[in-house]
Design a protein around this nucleic acid. Sequence first.
RNA 1: GGGCGCGUAGCUCAGCGGUAGAGCACUGUGUUGACAUCGCAGGGGUCACAAGUUCGAACCUUGUCGUGCCCACCA
Length: 891
Amino acid sequence: LYRYCIILTPPNVTGSMHMCHAFQDTIMDCHTRSQRMQGKNTLWQPGTDHAGIATQMVVERQLLAKGISRHDLGRDRFVEAVWQWKEESGDTISRQMRRLGASVDWQAHRFTMDDELSLTVRKVFVSLYKEGLIYRGQRLVNWDPVLHTALSDLEVLSEEENGKLWHICYPRADGRGQVVVATTRPETLLGDTAVAVNPQDERYSDLVGLMLELPLTGRRIPIIADDYVDPGFGSGCVKITPAHDFNDYEIGKRHDLPMINILNPDATLNENAPLAYQGLDRFKAREKVVADLQAAGLLERVESHKLMIPRGDRSQAVVEPYLTDQWYVKVEPLAKPAIEAVEDGRIQFVPANWSRTYFDWMHRIEDWCISRQLWWGHRIPAWYDDKGNIYVGMDEQDARLRCGLDSSISLRQDEDVLDTWFSSALWPFSTLGWPEPTARLKSFYPGSVLVTGFDIIFFWVARMIMMGMKFMDDVPFRTVYIHGLIRDGQGQKMSKSKGNVLDPLDLIDGIDLESLVAKRTTGLMQPKMASAIEKATRKEFPEGIPAYGTDALRFTFAALATTGRDIRFELGRVEGNRNFCNKLWNAARFVLMQTEGQTVKASFEPGPIDRWILSRMDRMVSEVDAHLGEYRLDLAAQSLYEFVWNEYCDWYLEFTKSTLQGEDENAKPATRHTLLSVLETTLRCLHPIMPFISEEIWQRIRPQLGIQGDTIMLQPWPQAGRRDQSPDQDIDQDIHWLKEVIQGVRRIRSELNISPGKPLDIRFQGGNETDRERLQCYQGVFGQLVRAASIQWVDDLADTSQCAVALLAELKILVPLAGLIDVDAELTRLHKQLEGEKAHVKTCQSRLGNRRFVENAPAEVVEQERQRLSEHESNLTRLDEQIKKLQSMNN
RNA sequence: GGGCGCGUAGCUCAGCGGUAGAGCACUGUGUUGACAUCGCAGGGGUCACAAGUUCGAACCUUGUCGUGCCCACCA
């Protein structure tokens, strides 16, 4: 595969960048950049979404501030106003993405209402209509009485709220008693057309078929039997309101009941309600119904009751099930291939668990209501004649043509627009020029990976898969990478109303406290929250937010991109990574100081220390590569961080100082070259995560290495295992030894409180041939890093009672401190170590003493354990010896 | 009611079958020509609990407790 494509989740034109965008963009950019460096033809497809309801609400609110409603303007002028607003502020988020370093293909930018994309939408609509996969139907929909539009199931969010359960008496028409029904919505009583009981319920079996007096209405309704009714709940009798409840609607259809719609579009009661209630808001009507029932003695009792209240996700208004004509997509035929694509692995979810969520939903999927009673969006390409016949086409002319209508018949277009997600579902191919067979379409469909949050798996991912399978006959992407949501440090969702929003750009550029407070407290829906928000903000950010820079922010996002769990975002992480950026920068400064104007030899025999860092780097490169391939940016970032800081800076740079400040002129050019080339390779590895700093440093070191090319962005991605030398196991062990020896001396210094500046005499005792060879090889470096005044081997009989000691297997590292040694301090130190060794020996012994362990565990594990034991035993013996010597001194 | 997660160092999180890890915070110390946004050294964890599988469990199984999210028509 030589091509790589990621589609950007198109942000709303209304939007500005929030943390989730920045997080997501970082992930996508990392992959795009690394794939680009791997030589692939990459496309990261950007764009924005017209976001029907959200955008319309924003503009309406602005007009309202000027005292104008959209109805004052009329449809055409209102839509014009939205376009104008879009032109003015629609590219905010694109500008912010540039600041983040997002390497999208800006020339390919699309907007879901571009002419080209609108054409795609109509084409798909017409095509699905022709196939019978789009139809117009009257049924119950979720109706938002504030926005006056239908909503899809997904746009309705239910939450548990405290309500009441009213028990109401319905008298029998024959005057022989009554039944009691329980309801959470007494006002719907006015639209009841039956009462249902369970057919198995013996209490009521005699009553089925009888009529009841429906209170307050003068109507009579039957008692019917239906399995839906749970005899155990309440009285076992359910009032049935087919026009205002989804279950009742189904029952109504089963029993052929009349459907009485008692509501207007704004949820006031209409002419089908008794006169006394007409025009009342539904909640006012509820109060009146209850009061009237009570007055009539028909209210048996009221109890408090928790129930799920459905609200529109935009307006927060309580949604009504409402009987209207709407357009629907018949999804079952579309869902089947979309399910199969995931089942057979053509699409993979990462992490894989999410496929289950996907399947659960896809298997229960219901027809998708796609019409919205809005003005902003893709207007539905359907026309009606005076008799209400429907004509669908690309435009009015096309519709006439298809149906053979001449111009004498007047048509009017459907007033509604399509659900925003309808056009979003086409995004993977609409942006590439479909239905034209463009080169872009051929190259970049299917996309490689979709990076998104789990919150829009249903809204978007599933629908893209369905539409992709339908119109491209292929999956829209091969991998769906689901990331977690960014939350604040306390785990709260970031929201304007909570006042805990962080703006990614404020983390990049910094912001002072007053500006931050102002930003968080202006434009609140609930202005009274302002003081609490201000207080919390001042407490959390007493100094405001410092400028961390883009790369630090990106690195933080990468490091936080673990497997799918939600992310608590803490400034401490950004600060730590800002320091990492700084560390890298300073390391580069060191390298430049050592190499500028100096001989740098490209062809050389690297010394052992150079070979060591090359070997470690090789390992890092292969780790980063593997982790990127598994979408584990967190692990990739960690490998880079550890290599740069803990190996390259902490050890390698320190090692080279000995060579570079030493006498051996011949060794210097090679070391300089290694310094540069390791830095250069590391920069290429870092570049996808930290594009700015890596580029900046790379430009400065490029000349010394004689590298061709204008930018690190297009340099080859580092390959592990490419260099001639095999993995340098021996060198790794050498340097491990060297570090241990150095740390042994440092520990003595630190624990005995010896000034870091004081040169020390170092003595080695015991040890084996390898120890001697190693010391000979690394004596210079060792001496430099521990500040040795002298280094000598002493024989086994030498008096070491005046020495502090560090142990490394058979080797004793001694620091003679004649007369200065604080014997008590040293004894304490040694006893502490002794206890540690004892514990280790005990663990090892008990393990090896277990016959079943020795018999069953793999040989290498047992062998490893034996070695461990002998090492600890040896340490134990030597520590014991040294303690005895010191104690004898003390006496 | 179903589904998916999570409970590991003070905090935020990796690790997911072979001696408990990172960052931040903490302690001691240090301006040795890359870096005090730093160096060096150090403290800190019966890996929620219980039982099981295994030579061996933070890791696998089962259960319990706590916690978060998603889906669902109980009036």
